[in-house]
Amino acid sequence: MIIDRMQVRLTRWPLKMTRKHGVGDVADTLPGVVVSLHTKDGLTGWGEAAPWSVFSGTAEAAVAALDVYLRPLVIGRDPRRLARIMAEADRTIVGHPEAKMALDMALHDLFGQAAGVSVAELLGGVFRESIPLSVSIANPDFDADLDFARARLAEGIRLFKVKTGFSTHAEDMSRLDRLAAMLPADASLRIDYNQGLAAVDAIRTLRDVEAFRPAFIEQPVARDRRDAMAEIARALDTPILADESVFSPEEAVECVRSRFADAVSIKLMKAGSFAKGKAIAAIAQAAGMPCYGGTMYEAGIALTAGIHFAASTPAMTLGAEYYTSAFVLGTEILKEPVRLEAGASWLPTGPGLGIAVDEAALKGATMEVRG
C-alpha cells in the first residue's frame, strides 16, 4: 500500500449564525482545509484542518505547510508507517498543528481501511460508543440563541457552554441569568471566556459568575498568563478548564506541575496528532484532571476524527462539542452526516474514519486545489 497522490483543498465554509468570543468574532464564512491521500490500489484517506487566525494559524498557511513541506513525506510511502511519518513532520516544520493533524487523520483513515478496523480501534480500542454533546451559546443575538438552546433541549442535549467576555460583565450576567432560568435541573451550564478577561480583575469578575454554579469556567485569561490561571484556580470553588493554555503534552505537564487548571480541553487541532492528543489525555488523567473534547469550526471529517479520539480515550469525561457541521456550518461534506442523537455524538461504524465524502459538495466549497 503506497501513497502516490495527495490533494490539498482550501475551502470556505458559510456559517448559519454569527459567533462572538472573548478573542475573535466570526460572521459569515470561515476558511478550512481538506486533504486527501490516494494509494496505488485505489484507497482514499481523508483529513481536515480547521485553523482560526485569532487562535493559532491561518488556512492559507496550513495549505502551504501541507503542499510544500509535508507532501514529500508521504508520496511513495506506506501509510502504515504513520508514526515515523508524523515524527518526520515535526522535524520538518515547526508549529502548524492543524496541518499535521489533517495529515495524521488521512494516514489513520488509510491504515484503518487497509486493516479493516476503525480509527478508534487503531487508537487503542473503543471505550465508549457515544460522547455527551456540549453546544456553545455564542450568538450576539441572544434571543436567537435561546431558541437554539430550546431546540437542542428538545433533542436531548443537556450540556450548554456560554461564551462570555466579548461584551460587558453586566451583559454576561444577564445572558447567564436568562439561560439558567430556562435550563432544566438535569442540564449542565459551562462558561467559556476564550481568554477574554484581564488578569487584574478576573477573580472578582469570576466570583460573580460562580453564583450560577457552572460545571467549569474555561480559559478566563490570556494563554500565556498561566500564573494568573493558577491564582484563579486556587481562589475559586469552580473548576477551571484550560484550553488555549494547553496545546501540547509539554504544556500539559506544566499544567499539572503548577496546577493552573483543574481540567483540560483537548482539541486535535491544537495537539497536531492523535498520539499527542493521547499523551495530553494520559498526563491529565494521571493527575486526576478530567478532559473535554473541544473543536474549532470543523466540518464532518475533523468532527468524525474527534469522535474516534474521544471514543477511545477514557479521560474524555466532560463531553465534547462535535456538532458544528450540523448546527453552525452551512455546508455538509459527508454523505452520512455525523450522527447526533439522544444528546450525544455517535461513533460511526466501518473501517478507517467510517465516512464517505460528498465530493460534489466539497467541490462547491473549494476555493483552490493543489495536487
Score class of each variant (00 low, 15 high):
Ile3Pro: 06
Met6Phe: 09
Arg9His: 14
Thr11Val: 15
Val23Asp: 02
Gly24Cys: 15
Val26Thr: 03
Ala27Asn: 03
Thr29Cys: 13
Ser36Phe: 01
Ser53Leu: 14
Glu60Leu: 15
Val63Met: 05
Val63Thr: 05
Leu70Ala: 00
Val74Cys: 07
Ile75Trp: 01
Pro97Ile: 07
Pro97Glu: 06
Met101Leu: 14
Met101Cys: 07
Asp109Glu: 12
Phe111Ser: 05
Gln113Val: 08
Ala114Gly: 06
Ala115Leu: 12
Gly116Leu: 15
Leu123Trp: 02
Gly125Ile: 14
Ile131Pro: 01
Ile131Met: 10
Val135Pro: 10
Pro140Ile: 04
Phe142Gln: 01
Ala149Gly: 07
Ala154Lys: 10
Val162Ser: 07
Thr168Val: 05
Thr168Cys: 14
Ala180Ser: 13
Ala181Phe: 06
Met182Tyr: 05
Pro184Trp: 10
Leu189Glu: 00
Asp201Val: 02
Ile203Arg: 01
Ile203Gly: 04
Thr205Phe: 13
Val209Thr: 00
Glu218Asp: 02
Pro220Ala: 07
Arg223Met: 11
Asp224Tyr: 05
Ala228Thr: 08
Ile240Thr: 02
Phe247Glu: 02
Ser248Met: 12
Glu251His: 00
Glu251Trp: 01
Ala252Leu: 07
Ser265Tyr: 09
Ile266Thr: 09
Leu268His: 06
Leu268Ser: 01
Ser273Ala: 09
Gly277Arg: 10
Lys278Trp: 11
Gly288Val: 14
Gly288Gln: 13
Met289Asn: 02
Thr295Val: 10
Ala305Thr: 13
Ser312Phe: 14
Tyr322Lys: 04
Pro351Ala: 15
Ala356Pro: 03
Ala356Tyr: 03
Val357Phe: 09
Ala361Leu: 10
Leu362Phe: 08
Gly364Asp: 15
Ala365Asp: 10
Val369Lys: 12
